[in-house]
Nucleic acid binder design. Structure first.
Lengths: 245, 245
DNA sequence: ACCTGAACACCGTTCAAGT
DNA sequence: ACCTGAACACCGTTCAAGT
């Protein structure tokens, strides 16, 4: 549910205090820890996809039965929360007294990278209420940086919300997009006949633009982000509709 | 996979051509159609949550065995695509020659409402590639409105992407948020002792602001949206970094 | 303290059989 | 053409039992 760092320290202490397993040889180290369970679960989800992550398969990949996982994790839901906390730990923490726009840009960029590394994470992060310590740290530092830069508490909350909305929304669309950028032109040529010119004239024409090399077909993460950051910068100077404090 | 309107017309034709069931009384109308399957699936997901939607339960709620659903739908994945197409049909279609900013505002607002009605939809919409006719219609009209307003094809694509990112990202955070707006103040008071003032000073202070009534704690959908629309309006006048056409 | 086997109550989907 | 029963290969989780 919460921090897994403490649990990690705890388990290291535990295994070092038990000298060696008395009967079994060197085959099974029997040092399954919560930390290892989470790490292996993330590796499995990263490699084989989220749907392939079952308690049974995870256990098998750790040379253990499914039920033994429940000694380290309350259940699958708890495991997912712990995994999400790890993902958020990969977000770049804003420096409280750093330049707010650059701090937000860097955090957003690192968020996108982390979410691209863990394709399964965004859908979960946004549809669950996981409040691990890393998640609290991230929110606190992000709010703190904006507030220190002169935004009100309300403005900081709205700003964070707008930035996160963009990062999650953009990255999920990006993850979902079926063709690689290098293949846009070829894909457009292939799909053109399937997009009826009468029913969808603008989509048809858009595909033509890509085929003719007039548009590379790539949306840009920074396009929407800079729109938001620009708007925030102007808002900061003239807080027209602010909500106090 | 594609349109379900045609299938609907087809099934109506079918059932009217078969006069009456010969043996069974009036108990089972036996008029299961693809349309009914989709409608019932959406009702079930809306009411009981996405996780409660299984082929077996859906079938039972239609007084039929699970396997009979496969006569109307390729599988669960196909069913989900058809459901998503219905959700997108609830988005307000931009008028091609209408005022672009107002059209985008209205579409975005109606998207949010539709996603709030169908809580299960956003996570799927953004993590699947469903291309039903309603989805193509929406994309075409949105691009068309922006292009007719003077944006280039590239700009229109980026603009749509930025708006959709915000709508999906914002709405999913909104759906996920655990407490109702009326209870923010009470919730902040309740959770304050759990937010360490030393570890998370800004979160602590933010909670204080809400408790003291200095900030109502509500993020606003239109805050981020207007940031984006404002930025687009400026971009339209001076397309500094445009991608051609 | 940790791990296991067996069991429970579920899944989506296939396939041969009915009408 | 549509529906069904039985079966297959899975799930997450509980519980009593082992060491």
């Amino acid at each position: 549910m919460f921090d897994d760092t403490q649990q990690y320290i705890y388990s290291v202490h535990m295994s070092s205090s038990s000298p060696a397993s008395p009967k079994s040889g060197a085959r099974k180290p029997r040092a399954l820890t919560r930390d290892k369970v989470i790490t292996q679960a993330m590796a499995l989800a990263d490699q084989d996809g989220f749907d392939a992550l079952s308690m049974r398969k995870l256990a098998a990949s750790l040379d253990v039965t499914a039920m033994s996982l429940y000694n380290h994790v309350t259940g699958k839901d708890d495991l997912l929360d712990l995994m999400l906390n790890r993902v958020v730990a990969e977000f770049e923490l804003p420096q409280i007294d750093g330049p707010w726009d650059e701090m937000m840009r860097r955090r957003a960029g690192s968020m996108r990278q982390a979410l691209l590394r863990h394709r399964w994470a965004p859908a979960l992060l946004i549809s669950k209420i996981a409040l691990g310590t890393e998640i609290l740290r991230d929110i606190n530092a992000t709010l703190g940086c904006l507030i220190t830069a002169g935004f009100s508490y309300a403005q900081a909350d709205w700003a964070r919300n707008a930035i996160d909305s963009h990062v999650y929304g953009y990255t999920m669309q990006e993850l979902n997009f079926p063709v690689a950028p290098e293949q846009y032109q070829a894909a457009a040529a292939q799909f053109l006949p399937m997009i009826s010119r009468q029913d969808y004239p603008f989509m048809h024409q858009a595909a033509m633009q890509i085929i003719e090399g007039k548009y590379d077909g790539m949306t840009r993460f920074s396009f929407g982000l800079e729109l938001i950051l620009d708007g925030l910068a102007r808002w900061r100077q003239s807080p027209s509709g602010g909500g106090g404090a």
